[in-house]
């Protein structure tokens, strides 16, 4: 159970990115976050694991106050929250396997990281996750030799290495073509269904929302303007979320 209470983020320079946002996500839900570019979707997702420090408000995860956690506690919280990014955020020059193993960093002893050592079980686990997303044979290639869709699968495998209870996906398919987009979304759906992982996923296309999400929240200029089922977004709601001039595509 994730509870976001009165979450506000004001960036340096006075830009109001999140304005008093309140919502709850029950365990195991697939929640889509929609809104225009710059509406605060990325900020919201990053405030949940404090990659961005919220200005005020609270994030409670399984009744633990994330916003009040010390650095050490935050590490323990973060390692249970996987994250998938729009631009994949792989380390280009490292191998695919190393990128996936990086998902384990919250668990391994930092002292062993100095000499770049992971336990055997972790390496086996990484190979298993790569097999799960269908790119086991690429394990020893450099990450930047992979295509966009393959890179995002590495990103998902990295998140899975964390044994996550929740995955934050920040526009995971925005840099991919529609066919690849569905394949990536299907992996997220699979993880949500099979492993019971809560998924918070910001999306651009409404058809993807309809197809994959259990529930939708919408942001407009940092305010929560919609919270309900995907089917409930009719034309009026749509204009409320995306502005008067917006037209539906897809």
């Amino acid at each position: 159970m994730l509870r976001v209470q009165n979450l506000t983020k004001i960036y340096e320079g006075g830009v109001l990115a999140l304005d008093n946002v309140n919502f709850e996500v029950p365990r195991g839900q697939f929640l889509a976050v929609i809104g225009l570019s710059g509406s605060g979707k990325s900020t919201l997702l990053r405030c949940i694991n404090r990659l961005i420090e919220p200005t005020s408000g609270k994030v409670l995860w399984n009744e633990v106050d994330v916003t009040a956690a010390s650095e050490e506690e935050l590490r323990l919280i973060r390692r249970k929250i996987g994250m998938v990014f729009q631009h994949f955020n792989l380390v280009h020059r490292s191998s695919v396997l190393t990128n996936v193993l990086a998902g384990r960093l919250g668990y391994v002893n930092p002292a062993w990281s100095i000499i770049n050592r992971f336990p055997k079980e972790d390496v086996e686990k990484a190979m298993k996750q790569l097999a799960r997303v269908g790119i086991a044979e690429k394990a020893n290639q450099r990450a930047d030799e992979l295509s966009g869709g393959q890179q995002q699968r590495v990103g998902i495998a990295r998140a899975l290495m964390q044994d996550p209870a929740m995955i934050l996906a920040d526009e995971p398919v925005a840099s991919l073509d529609p066919v690849l987009a569905h394949s990536i979304m299907q992996y997220l759906e699979l993880i949500n269904k099979e492993d019971g992982v809560t998924v918070l996923c910001s999306l651009h296309f409404l058809d993807l929302v309809h197809r994959y999400a259990h529930r939708v929240i919408a942001l407009n200029e940092g305010k929560l303007v919609f919270d309900g089922l995907p089917e409930e977004i009719d034309d009026n709601r749509f204009k409320e979320i995306y502005g008067k001039d917006a037209e539906r595509v897809g």
Partner: peptide
Amino acid sequence: GPLEAVRSTGATRLQMIIY
């Protein structure tokens, strides 16, 4: 980006630098 990704896995600062 990669720095952010490694940080989000719960890595320490030293691990972020190394990986």
